[in-house]
Design a protein around this nucleic acid. Sequence first.
DNA 1: TTGAAATTGATAAACCGTCTCAAAAGGAAT
DNA 2: ATTCCTTTTGAGACGGTTTATCAATTTCAA
Lengths: 143, 143
Amino acid sequence: MSKHQKEMGVLKEHLGKHQLKYTRQRELILDAFLKQEHITAEEMYHQLARKDPHLGLATIYRTLNLFCEAGLAQARHFGTQTQYDNISHKGHHDHLICTDCGKIVEFENCDIERLQEEVATRNGFTIKTHRLELYGLCSRCRH
Amino acid sequence: MSKHQKEMGVLKEHLGKHQLKYTRQRELILDAFLKQEHITAEEMYHQLARKDPHLGLATIYRTLNLFCEAGLAQARHFGTQTQYDNISHKGHHDHLICTDCGKIVEFENCDIERLQEEVATRNGFTIKTHRLELYGLCSRCRH
DNA sequence: TTGAAATTGATAAACCGTCTCAAAAGGAAT
DNA sequence: ATTCCTTTTGAGACGGTTTATCAATTTCAA
Ligand SMILES: [Mn+2]
Ligand SMILES: [Mn+2]
Ligand SMILES: [Zn+2]
Ligand SMILES: [Zn+2]
């Protein structure tokens, strides 16, 4: 029995609903993905090269995008490459990013979210999504 | 006497400090840039093609990046292309973006900024910059 | 006016992610 | 287990955006 029973269930349900198939590659990528908070396709490509040297980069991109559609992942554009954020066991959140060491801290702040809604309403907008990223130095890198 | 006396002064001061030269192209691009709130390099390339058909796209990218260094512009990554934001006559601000028609509304909210600082402090971070973008539908597009 | 240094324009290259397509694999029905 | 249709895969081509290269041109201080 796998460690990631619940998430595998979510994926299989999505696959079933869309006439998609459960493959060895998808299982492999899901396992690797659920071990991280954020990961890029390239990072995963290198990690998995040990387990399966023939796994293609395109397959990793395709599969991570599939996870986004299944609600397990969310694509974030922090730096130059897309980070796939493991949201399987957590709700909406935003990020603090250290520009020196790359450390990423997740946070949630209801007050900020509420004020965002106020701003939107005042301007006649209905918010669908948002991105809030705070860039700076973490405590280690400040010294 | 040009319409953009102040901004031209800012640019010339930056050029002076860095042993850079004041060229016809830089003047042309500055004038076009200051007429917009946000513009992409490609858009400016097409606009200026009338005034100077030989102006190269690389020069536009180089010059807009120069404006960023001089503090006149700020690069923003809303969609697929980089938007250069004219910040010469305004301070920091964030954006509401309509995902349907592309309309962009600028806003400032001190309360949000203060809460961001609180979040950062609580996590040991010192913020240098941030990005806050609210995506949704404007009043026209909601109907 | 001269000449060293910066700039320009054309285009190649880098970068990241998606598309293409023939071969392989999944899986439902038999 | 076999069949057979559909989906998936891997390799590499491709596309859009931005930067790098480099010879020719321009700037500007002496
Ligand atoms: Mn996250
Ligand atoms: Mn703006
Ligand atoms: Zn750090
Ligand atoms: Zn709109």
